[in-house]
Structures are given as C-alpha cells and as structure tokens.
Amino acid sequence: MNNTPQPLQVLFLWNLIFTGGEGFKQDLKPELKPASKRKELIKWGLIQEEKRKTKKGSQALYIQLTEKGWKWANDNITAEFSNRSTASAPALAALLSRLNNYLNQHHLSLAEILGLLNSDPVANEPEIDLEQRIRDAYYQISDEKWNVRVHLHELRQSLPDISRESLDQKLLDMQKQEKLVLYNMDDVRNIRPEDEDAAIDIAGFKRHILYMEG
C-alpha cells in the first residue's frame, strides 16, 4: 500500500504547517477533493480531525497535524508539491511571515539563515576551544559581568592570535546557537573608527557589539 502523500496533499500539509499546524477545514487550502484524499492523511496518521465550535457558534471540522505529521514534514522537506494550485502562494506567504518573525526575534539576517556565509573551517588553523576563549575574553572585558555590551574591537584585541575569518565565523555560529547576540550601534555618532574596522558585515548590515549570557 502506498502511504506517500501526493503533490496536492503535500501542499495541503505545508499550508497546515505554515499556518500553525491546525485550523478549521473551511479555512485550509487547497481543498482536498474528493474527501478520500483528506481521509488518506488521517489513515496514515499525519492529521487528525474533530468537530469544534466556530466563533459563530456553529460546528465545523477542525484539523490538526499529528506528531507523526510533524515528523513526516521534517523528513520530507523536499517532497514534491503541486505547483498548479493557487494555494502555493498562501503557503509561501505564511512561511515568509514566520521566517520574518524568527529573524526579528533572534536579531538575524536572511543571509545567516540561508547559509550564504562561508561555514567551512579555516584551513591550517590550530585546533583550539575558540568558544571558551571568546567567553573568557568577554567576561574579562566586561569586568566579570554577563549580558552587558562589549565592543567587537575590544574582543579582537583580546584574541590577537585568532584570524579575523575564524573569529567572525565562530561568533556567527554562536549567534545561530543562541549563545550570544550581535548588534549594530544605533547612534552613528557613537561609532568610532575602531568600531567600524572591527564590525562584522552581514548582508550589508554591520554589527559592532555583542551581548553574551553566562
């Protein structure tokens, strides 16, 4: 028996995921016709449905992605979906909206998320615990305080033996792992030449300072 969702079913699942993983059937796109197409997803354990009361007080089918459905999505990100349905555009819009929220919350750029920056380790660099050295340097510069502003030029001065490329890449990796946050300096009047020289340029946006929690 073939338990592989077909392109239109795949698009339905992605729309469901990008809009929060649940919703009333009448609000979900594309509409799966015949109903057996939706029933197949239930049979395979990817979604579940029940009757719920709407805001208007009437009863309607409410659909939720199951844990198995989330696992399917994680394992089948490249699954073929229908490109003929008009529901493709809302799916993309919902994804971009969630991506935008994530970028804003974590102070990241789209370039960082898409991996446009070189993530290869620098050749012939001696193996060191660079993350720990960064943490130690930050703690020393900040007078043994966490979650306070430290200028990148101060950090670079504290780690003179680390190449700029290696240090930049490690800082970006740590930001992705939510171990620190890189910020720009909002008031350009406070940006000194050493701040400008030490800044990390991410897709045209310069980050001059960092915050790190202990």
Results as ranks from 00 to 15, higher is better:
Ser163Glu: 04
Ile141Phe: 07
Asp161Thr: 10
Tyr211Ile: 01
Gln140Asp: 14
Ser85Gln: 02
Leu171Ser: 02
Leu108Pro: 00
Arg164Leu: 11
Val188Ser: 12
Pro121Lys: 11
Leu103Ser: 03
Trp70Gly: 04
Asn184His: 14
Gly204Trp: 04
Leu92Glu: 01
Met185Val: 13
Leu92Gln: 08
Glu127Asn: 08
Gln105Phe: 04
Tyr183His: 15
Glu127Leu: 08
Thr78Phe: 11
Asp75Leu: 12
Leu110Lys: 09
Arg133Gln: 15
Gly204Glu: 03
Ile200Lys: 01
Ala91Asp: 06
Leu182Cys: 06
Glu178Ile: 10
Leu210His: 04
Ala79Gln: 09
Asp136Ser: 11
Leu180Val: 07
Asn104Lys: 14
Glu194Asp: 12
Leu65Phe: 07
Ile134Asp: 01
His151Phe: 03
Glu125Ala: 15
Asn101Met: 12
Leu95Pro: 11
Ser109Leu: 03
Ala198His: 03
Ala79Phe: 02
Ile141Tyr: 06
Glu127Arg: 08
Asp173Glu: 15
Phe81Asp: 03
Pro90Gly: 04
Ile134Arg: 07
Asn124Met: 13
Ser109Met: 10
Ile200Asn: 05
Gln177Ser: 12
Ile141Ser: 05
Ser97Ile: 12
Arg133Cys: 01
Leu103Ala: 09
Asn124Val: 13
Glu154Pro: 14
Trp146His: 12
Pro90Val: 09
Ser158Asp: 02
Asp161Ala: 00
Pro126Cys: 13
Gln140Val: 07
Trp72Ser: 06
Ala93Glu: 10
Asp75Asn: 11
Gln140Arg: 07
His151Asn: 13
Glu144Cys: 06
Leu180Ala: 04
Ser163His: 01
Asp168Ala: 02
Arg207Val: 03
His107Cys: 05
Glu67Gln: 14
Ser88Ala: 11
Arg98Met: 09
Glu194Gly: 04
Arg156Glu: 04
Leu95Ala: 13
Pro121Phe: 10
Asn124Ile: 13
Val188Asp: 14
Leu96Glu: 10
Gln140Tyr: 06
His208Val: 05
Leu167Ala: 01
Ala111Phe: 00
Gln132Gly: 00
Ala87Ser: 11
Thr66Lys: 02
Ile128Phe: 04
Trp146Ile: 09
Arg98Glu: 14
Ala79Asn: 03
Leu159His: 00
Asn104Leu: 13
Arg84Val: 09
Thr86Ala: 15
Ala137Glu: 01
Asp168Thr: 11
Gln140Glu: 15
Gln177Met: 14
Glu125Met: 12
Ser158Lys: 12
Ala198Tyr: 06
Leu180Pro: 05
Ala87Ile: 05
Pro90Cys: 05
Asp197Phe: 08
Ala198Phe: 00
Lys206Phe: 05
Leu171Asn: 05
Ala91Ile: 13
Ala93Lys: 15
Val150His: 02
Asp173Met: 08
Ile77Ala: 15
Leu159Gln: 06
Leu110Arg: 09
Arg192Trp: 13
Tyr139Leu: 14
Ala123Leu: 15
Ile202Asn: 02
Lys206Ala: 01
Arg133Trp: 07
Leu172Ala: 03
Asp201Met: 08
Asp173Lys: 03
Ala94Arg: 06
Val150Gly: 01
Lys170Met: 10
Ala73Lys: 06
Gln132Ser: 05
Pro193Glu: 05
Leu130Asp: 07
Ile202Thr: 06
Pro160His: 08
Gln132Ala: 08
Glu194Ala: 10
Leu92Cys: 06
Gln157Asn: 07
Pro160Trp: 08
Ala87Pro: 00
Leu116Pro: 06
Thr66Arg: 03
Leu167Cys: 02
Tyr211Asp: 00
